[in-house]
Simulated assay, not measured.
Amino acid sequence: MTSPTSPTRPIVVVTGASSGIGAATARALAADGWHPVLGARRLDRIRAIADEVGGTALPLDVTDGASVDAFAQRVRDLGAVRGLVNNAGGAKGTEKVVDADEEHWRWMWESNVLGTVRVTKALLPSLIASGDGHIVTITSIAGLEVYDGGSGYTAAKHAEGALHRTLRGELLGEPVRVTEIAPGAVETEFALVRFDGDQERADKVYEGITPLTADDVAATVAFAMSRPSHVNIDTLVLKPRDQATGMRFNRR
């Protein structure tokens, strides 16, 4: 969708917005009065969502520096950027360290860590210049703990969380808030991607529990971003009631 050159609502960028948490966040923030700019590779999906919520859809591959630069320029052309939700990322595989698949590791670091660096770096000057910016990064409880078979993903999410929390200190004194949202089990396409499209295996992740939904996480993002400008919610951890840790569940 092509939107007005200068949206009247404050602009918020949502990466990885073609499905799951990203799509739900775009909808929730639009309902809260934001103009969401949806970035993702699957253009057909983000165009449909942008049409639905009155936002803007732009192609974005966070693993490609040239794509990020082009995206950021088109976003800046729309006007001042007030919000950024770093949501793009994901997991691949459950190999133990001894069987580590370097391609899986490389993809996870590119999408979760370097992708967050690229987009944040490209949009940070505009966020500061807005006079009231807000950066939200969707990490994971995998950034707070480790589990067998999850070394590639937990390592990437620990790094992304460290990056984000470092940014909190580096931006002290600037008009930008910094919030980390760390969800537990959320039923989205996450497990399907991790297991290379194996639907049966992905379904077993949520078997016997009531997981979080993408809307649950999106509502948390919207809550954090709706606080007064002087209130910075540093970190929010949310899990299903049926989950205690990354691998400990109450399965019925």
Rank of each mutant, 00 (worst) to 15 (best):
T94C: 03
G16W: 06
R82S: 04
D101R: 11
P211L: 00
D61I: 01
G173M: 07
L114G: 06
I11L: 00
R74W: 00
T2H: 14
E103S: 14
E189M: 05
I141G: 03
A191K: 09
A214P: 04
H230I: 12
A191C: 11
M1T: 15
E200H: 10
D69N: 06
L78W: 05
A191P: 00
H104I: 00
G90S: 03
P36Q: 00
G150F: 02
E200G: 05
V237K: 14
T25N: 02
D99H: 08
G90I: 03
L171S: 13
V113T: 15
A66T: 11
E145I: 03
L236S: 05
A218N: 05
G197D: 09
P7D: 02
G169R: 12
I181Q: 05
V119M: 13
A156F: 08
I128Q: 15
G169I: 01
T245L: 14
R227H: 10
G93S: 05
T166K: 09
L236M: 10
T220M: 01
G131F: 11
V97H: 01
F71K: 05
M1Q: 11
L43P: 13
G133P: 13
H104D: 15
V136C: 06
A72G: 03
T2S: 11
E170N: 11
T137S: 15
L238V: 15
S19I: 01
D99Y: 09
T120H: 10
F71Q: 04
N112Y: 12
D32E: 06
A224F: 02
R251F: 12
H104V: 00
I49Y: 08
A28W: 04
A142L: 02
G54V: 12
L60N: 00
V178M: 11
N86M: 04
G208T: 13
A31N: 06
V217D: 08
T166I: 04
D99C: 03
S126H: 12
E145C: 03
W107V: 12
L212I: 08
A202F: 06
Y206T: 05
R74D: 06
A155M: 07
D99M: 02
A17V: 09
D32R: 10
N86R: 09
T116G: 15
G184A: 07
P183W: 14
A224S: 02
E102L: 09
V53T: 07
H164C: 02
P4F: 07
A30G: 10
V37N: 05
E95D: 11
Q243F: 15
G33K: 07
D148P: 01
R74L: 00
G54R: 02
G184N: 12
A156I: 09
T166N: 15
H164E: 00
V13P: 05
H164Q: 07
E110F: 10
V136L: 12
S6I: 10
D216V: 08
A159W: 12
G184T: 14
R45F: 02
R248P: 00
A156K: 06
W34Q: 05
W109Y: 15
G90D: 02
T94F: 10
L124I: 12
V85L: 08
G115C: 14
G65N: 06
R45I: 07
V231N: 00
L84C: 04
R42E: 02
L78F: 09
R76N: 04
G54I: 13
L58W: 01
A122H: 14
A23I: 02
A218W: 04
G246V: 13
G131V: 08
A23C: 01
A24Q: 03
I209L: 07
T188D: 06
